[in-house]
């Protein structure tokens, strides 16, 4: 999906800056970032470490307050959106609770919302099927591989059927093979749930493969240096990774970094 005049705006950032104060000096982590993300769009925040991409995601999630600028999510503030349970977040590590089995880890947000047990069971079965972990429903997290754990985390993030899925380098700890397979699985899940996805990554191929648009961020200070449309058709397939168009997009993004 590309941005057109008719697209409904989901997330709007205006002139967002973030300063960290240390004893001696002040670090500008983000400098006046403005961007719009449409409803149902899959976008990536791409950049090297220190570019503020995770900070930007955390500001959207209302886990951090920006020093300046405003965040609007579906017409509300980020805080209101969080309290209205509009977010599903997938962190860099799976953050599963050791004392819960796969199934109850997934239904944790439903428990917090007071959803009835029968409904939780039904939703859990549905989500386990979605992420392909039906056989592991009664396992503890430590009995799963890293990739499986991250799939559980994705299922948990989807439990509330969130309007917005925020993902902070969710596959960065995985090997290249698991990562590519999970990229494809994520797209297939996304095509079924249709949430807006904001995906933070430092991998150019990953951003190109997944996204409708890629926001390229550059460091020192963190700023938005380019927005690249990815016109590859959907559904995306592994073969596309070998096509000239794919490589062309990677080159285009690489050229757009400033001051790295």
């Amino acid at each position: 999906m590309t941005m057109t005049a008719t697209t409904v705006q989901e997330i709007q950032l205006e002139q967002v800056s973030m300063r960290y104060r240390t004893d001696a000096s002040e670090v500008l982590a983000l400098q006046q970032v403005s961007l719009n993300i449409g409803r149902g769009e899959f976008v990536s925040l791409l950049g090297p470490s220190g570019c503020g991409k995770t900070t930007l995601l955390r500001i959207m999630a209302d886990l951090l307050q920006p020093s300046e600028g405003s965040v609007t999510v579906a017409g509300k503030s980020a805080r209101e959106a969080r309290l209205a349970q509009k977010y599903g977040i997938v962190f860099q590590s799976p953050v599963l609770y050791d004392w819960r089995k796969v199934k109850t880890n997934i239904t944790l947000p439903l428990e917090l919302m007071g959803v009835k047990k029968a409904d939780r069971e039904r939703k859990a079965a549905e989500l386990l099927e979605l992420v392909g972990l039906e056989k592991f429903r009664d396992k503890y997290p430590w009995q799963l591989s890293g990739g499986m754990q991250q799939r559980v985390a994705i299922a948990r993030a989807l439990a509330m059927e969130p309007e917005i899925l925020l993902m902070d380098e969710p596959f960065s700890a995985l090997d290249e093979f698991s990562r590519e397979r999970l990229n494809e699985e994520l797209l297939s899940i996304w095509s079924k749930v249709g949430s807006t996805v904001v995906f933070v990554t430092h991998s150019i191929p990953e951003a190109v493969f997944l996204s409708d648009r890629v926001f390229v961020l550059s460091p020192h200070p963190g700023r938005l240096s380019a927005v690249v449309e990815i016109p590859l058709p959907r559904p995306r397939t592994q073969e596309m990774r070998n096509g000239p168009e794919f490589f062309g997009l990677i080159a285009k993004i690489r050229d757009s970094f400033e001051g790295v």
Binding site: Q85, Y87, F91, L108
Partner: peptide, 23 residues
């Protein structure tokens, strides 16, 4: 990060204790 997860779900302080800190 386990606390942030609770925070992102707007969990009540009681839930944070009961479902996270106690276990």
């Amino acid at each position: 990060s386990a606390l942030e997860l609770m925070h992102s779900y707007a969990a009540k302080p009681w839930s944070v204790y009961w479902k996270l800190r106690f276990p």
